[in-house]
Computed example of a mutant assay.
Amino acid sequence: MKLSADLAAFAARLGHGFSTPDLLTRAVTHSSISSPTRGDNQRLEFLGDRVLGLVMAEALLAADLKASEGRLAPRFNALVRKETCADVAREIGLGEVLKLGRSEMMSGGRRKEALLGDAMEAVIAAVYLDAGFEAARDLVLRLWGRRIALVETDARDPKTALQEWAQARAMPPPVYDELGRSGPDHQPVFTVEARLENGEAERAEAGTKRAAEQAAARALLARMEKRT
């Protein structure tokens, strides 16, 4: 079976010609539209997560021959977490070719972080099954390239980093307050404030409450570290 025009264009953006086109079709098919004759991408997502992890572990070890496990682990987590996979998916227009059920489509499924991240992992698995590990590794390194190069020496979750900064100065953990929510239900925007006991605070907006908390924590930590 040949790829549809939109999937063929997407495969071209990936830079991979599929010998088994059905793999790519399954990788972009969400469970909301699956049927006994149409498989979804859940099993591929499971496999792709492991392939991505191996590629990143190899890349980080090769990039820093002296780093300890304790320093490598946060970098690894930053590169394989769902948010990063979703960011890569957005860059290559994966949301545009997702096959979704009506309810998911109406609720903004093409922009949902979890759906995009899962589908990105499924696409990695599709390339792996179609052409082997080297092809999948080449794909991941190409799509994640600048992220691997720019990953911070300390790539901890911003909320964790801010909490550790506060604890090192005998402060209680920072507090996060949801100040508002705007936009339609399928595309909300959350406004969150991160605040330290000393009164210092930063606000941020994002499409999920968690992402807004992280952005506020990152901004507050950057300001406090710059000041000290």
Score class of each variant (00 low, 15 high):
68 S>W: 04
195 R>S: 10
215 A>H: 05
13 R>S: 11
145 G>I: 00
191 T>E: 13
151 V>K: 01
132 G>N: 08
97 V>G: 03
76 F>T: 00
174 P>H: 03
52 L>H: 08
68 S>N: 09
91 E>T: 11
60 L>C: 05
177 D>S: 14
73 A>I: 03
161 A>E: 08
196 L>K: 08
198 N>Y: 03
215 A>L: 13
92 I>D: 04
99 K>S: 15
169 R>V: 10
11 A>T: 07
117 G>Y: 09
156 R>A: 11
24 L>I: 07
173 P>F: 02
220 L>A: 05
125 A>Q: 08
172 P>A: 13
50 R>D: 09
151 V>F: 02
68 S>L: 10
188 P>E: 02
182 S>Q: 13
153 T>G: 12
116 L>D: 04
93 G>D: 11
70 G>A: 12
207 G>F: 07
85 C>R: 13
132 G>W: 02
75 R>K: 11
116 L>Y: 08
146 R>F: 08
17 G>Y: 01
34 S>W: 05
189 V>L: 13
79 L>E: 01
33 I>M: 05
222 A>V: 02
136 A>T: 06
5 A>T: 14
132 G>L: 07
112 K>N: 14
163 Q>A: 15
142 R>H: 06
65 L>Y: 04
105 M>H: 13
209 K>D: 09
13 R>W: 05
41 N>L: 09
129 L>Y: 04
165 W>Q: 06
161 A>V: 05
111 R>I: 01
19 S>L: 11
206 A>S: 12
219 A>E: 06
115 L>M: 14
166 A>V: 07
17 G>Q: 15
35 S>N: 05
68 S>M: 09
93 G>Q: 08
80 V>Q: 04
110 R>E: 09
218 R>P: 00
143 L>I: 05
65 L>M: 08
18 F>D: 02
43 R>W: 06
94 L>V: 08
159 K>L: 10
12 A>L: 13
172 P>V: 11
141 L>D: 04
212 A>C: 04
3 L>V: 08
212 A>G: 08
60 L>P: 01
3 L>W: 09
93 G>A: 03
181 R>E: 12
154 D>K: 10
148 I>N: 05
192 V>I: 15
102 R>A: 13
147 R>D: 06
53 G>Q: 07
140 V>A: 07
155 A>V: 06
59 A>H: 00
223 R>H: 07
188 P>Q: 02
10 F>Q: 07
142 R>N: 06
178 E>I: 12
99 K>L: 14
150 L>P: 00
128 Y>M: 03
190 F>H: 12
5 A>E: 15
170 A>L: 13
121 E>F: 11
175 V>I: 13
181 R>V: 11
97 V>Y: 07
